[in-house]
Design a protein around this nucleic acid. Structure first.
Lengths: 215, 215, 215, 215
DNA sequence: AATGAATGAGACTTCATTCAT
DNA sequence: CATGAATGAAGTCTCATTCAT
C-alpha cells in the first residue's frame, strides 16, 4: 500500500482497487496521466467517482500504483519466460547484448506505465519523491553493477563503483527516450529499434567497460 | 517571429514582448510550462492578461519562444567565450572531452528552458511537433556527425552513418536526464556532474567509436 | 432529452434540470439568450456553474430546451382550455378568426421563449439549424394547410399548395413581429392587439383565400 | 449626425467617417453587427481603433449610421431608376403589384443593412429606441396610407385609418422575415421569391382592402 | 487628429474533490 | 461501503474601451 492510499480491509475493497488499477492501466495506453480525469478512470472501472476517493486520498495517490503495476508485470514476465541464461564461458559483449535485448523487450511492452511515472516525476518533482520510482531505478543499477562485478576480469576500468554508476545512468537514459517516447526527438535521430538498437547500446557499453581510464 | 505570434510594429510592442519573454523565462525556473498560467505570466511581466494575447495568439504560441530564448542565450554565450579550439594534432578522445564539457556547461546553464520544451513535447506531442525543437536536435546530430567524419581515420566502426546517428541519440539522451532533471532518477544514479560527468560520457563515446562492429 | 444534453439518472438530477430550466425561463423574460451568462443562470437557479455543465454540454445545448419549455406550456394550456371547436356549418371567416385569436393568445403568453429561439436562429443560423424550431414552424404550416383543405370549397384560389404555403408564411410573420416584439417597430405601426389584431389578420387571410388568381 | 456620434468639423474627419461607414457596410454583408468587432471595422477602414472612437462615442453609436446608409442608398436608387409610375386609370391590384415588386427589389438589395438594424433593435430595445428606425417604418406606413387613400373608391373597408395601419404592419412584417432572413424559417415555408412572392403579397393586400368589414 | 498598444472585466469551460443519499 | 450529483476555484480567451505617443 503506497502513500495516500487507504487500507482495504474487505474483499470488496480489494476488488474495487483492482478495477481502478486496471482502468488506469488501460487509460494510460492512450493518454498521459494528466489527461486522464478521475471521472474517466471511474467510468472505465465501472464504479463511481466517489469510490475512487474512498480508496485513494487524491489523484496523485494513483501514481505509486502505476509503478506497482509495472513491477508486477515485470515479475510475472520474468517468472514466465526463461530469464537471461549466461553460459559459463560466455563473452561479456554477448552477455550485454542479451541483457539489452531483454531489457528493451520489457521496456517496450509496458512503456505506457513507465512513461506515466517518468512524466509525473518531471512535472511534480516535489510531490513525487516517489521513493518507489527511485528504488526501481536503483534496482536496475544494482543489476548492472552485478554484471560488471561478475565480469570484472574483462573490465579494464579501475574505479568499478563509478563505472557501474555511470553505466547504470546511461542504461536508464538510453531506455527512457527511445523506449518511452519513440516518436519524439531525440529518439527519432536513430531510426532503428528492437535488436539493432539493443545491440548498438550493448556495444557502446561494452566498449566503455573495455576502455582503460586515462592516466 | 514564430508561429502564432503576432507582429510588433512599435517599439513599445517590442518592449512588451520582452517583458513577456522575461516573465516566462523566470517562471520556468520554478514550474513547468503547464503549471504557469497566462495570468501568472502577465503578473510577472506587470502587464494585463489581454496584452499577452495581443502578442501571442494563444498560450501554446509561447512554446517556440522558449526555444528562441535558449538559442539567443546559446549564441551570446558562444560569442562571448572562446569556442572549442581543436589543435591540429589533437587526439579524438581529447576532442570529445572538450565538446562534452562545453555542451554540459551550456546545457546546465539554461536547463529550465530546455526542460520546458522537452516536457511540452512529451505532454502534447501532436501540437508540439514544434519543428524548431526537432531542428535543434538535428543540428546537434549534425555536429556530432561532423566530428566523427573529421576523425574518420580513428573511428573503427564501418557504418559511419548509423554510428553517427546512434552517437547523436546517446548524446542527447545523456544530456536530457542528467541536464534537465538533475535531481531526479536516473540522474541521481551517477552522483557526479561537471567535468567528471562530461569526461565519462566522452570516454564512453570514444570507446564506442573505437570498437569495430562484430563480424 | 435534446442534443447536447446529458442524461439524468437520479431524481436529484431532474430537480436540478428543472431549476436550470426555470432559471433560464426567468432570465429570458428580461434579456436575450446572448445576454444571459451561464453564471447568471446558475445564480438564478441557486446552483454552481459546474452543475449547469453537468447537465448540458455547453451553453448552446440550452437552446433546444427553450423550445421544449414552450411546447410543454402549449400542451398544458391546450389541455386545460377548451380547444378550437368548429361547428359543422361554420363559416371559413369565423373559423379563421377563432384560430387567430387562439394562436395570438398562445403566442403572447410565452413570447419570451419564442423570442429567444427566434433571435438565436437569426444570430447563429449555422449552429441553430435547430431542427426543433423548423419542425415547429412546419407544424404550424401543416395546420394552416389542413384548414384550407378542409374548406377547399370556399377557397377560390386554385393552386392550393402554393396558397397554403404563402398563408403559412404570412401567419408566422404576422405573429413574429407583433407577438415577439410588441414594443418595437413595425409592431407599433398597428396600435391594437388581442382580438382586434387577430380578427384583422383573419380577415386578411380570408380575403386572400377568396380572391381568385388573376388569369 | 445621430446620437453618440461626434461632430466632424474638418474635411479629414469627414473622410474618416466615410471610411468607417463603408467598412461597416462591407462587414455587415458577412456577419451580424454583434459579430463585427470594432477592431475589424477599423482594419477594414484602414484606420486605427482609436480613430473610430474619435468619431463615435461607442460601438452602439454606429447603429444609427447603418440606417443612414440604407436611406442614402434608397434615395440614390429611387432617384436613379424611374420611380413607380401609376397610369391614371390603373387598377389597384396592378398598382399594389408594382409597389410590392419595387419594394422587394430595394429590400433584397440592402438586406444586410436592414437586418443589422432590425436585429439590434431586438437585442437591445432599451438603447435602440433608435428614433430613426421608427421614423423609417412610419415613413413606409405613410406611403401605404397614401396609396390607400388615393384608391379609396376601390377600398371596401370603412375604417381607413385602421386599415392603413394594419396594411402597413403587414407590409413590414412581410418583408422582414422573407427579406432579411431568406434562409431561415418561416421564410423557407414559402419557397418562392422575386415577382412571385411580391405578387402574392400584393394579392393578399388587395383582397384585404376589397373585403368589407363584418357588421 | 490619428495611432494602436494596453487594459481588464467577464464569458465559457474543466475537473479534482466533497457530501448527501 | 458505494454512488454520482454538486461544487467552485482556476484556466483560457475575447473585445469594447482607454490613453500615451
Amino acid at each position: 500500500m503506497s502513500q495516500g492510499e487507504k487500507p482495504a480491509y474487505q474483499d470488496r475493497s480489494r476488488q474495487t482497487r483492482e478495477k481502478i488499477v486496471a482502468a488506469l492501466d488501460d487509460a494510460l495506453r492512450e493518454k498521459s496521466f494528466d489527461q486522464v480525469s478521475v471521472a474517466e478512470i471511474a467510468q472505465r472501472a465501472d464504479i463511481a467517482v466517489g469510490t475512487v476517493y474512498r480508496r485513494f486520498e487524491n489523484k496523485d495517490a494513483l501514481i505509486p500504483v502505476i509503478l506497482e503495476i509495472y513491477q508486477k508485470r515485470l515479475e510475472a514476465w520474468v517468472a514466465g519466460e526463461s530469464g537471461i541464461e549466461i553460459e559459463p564461458d560466455e563473452d561479456l559483449r554477448a552477455v550485454l547484448r542479451k541483457i539489452m535485448r531483454k531489457s528493451w523487450a520489457i521496456c517496450a511492452r509496458e512503456a505506457h506505465l513507465l512513461r506515466a511515472v517518468h512524466l509525473y516525476s518531471r512535472l511534480k518533482p516535489d510531490l513525487a519523491d516517489s521513493e518507489d520510482w527511485k528504488q526501481y531505478e536503483q534496482a536496475s543499477a544494482q543489476s548492472i553493477a552485478a554484471v560488471i562485478n561478475h565480469y570484472a576480469s574483462q573490465v579494464k576500468r579501475k574505479n568499478l563503483k563509478r563505472t557501474s554508476a555511470f553505466a547504470a545512468y546511461m542504461f536508464n537514459s538510453f531506455f527512457i527516450e527511445k523506449g518511452l517516447y519513440p516518436e519524439e526527438a531525440p529518439a527519432t535521430l536513430f531510426p532503428y529499434s528492437g535488436k539493432t538498437l539493443a545491440d548498438e547500446f550493448a556495444d557502446m557499453l561494452y566498449a566503455y567497460l573495455r576502455l582503460p581510464e586515462e592516466k
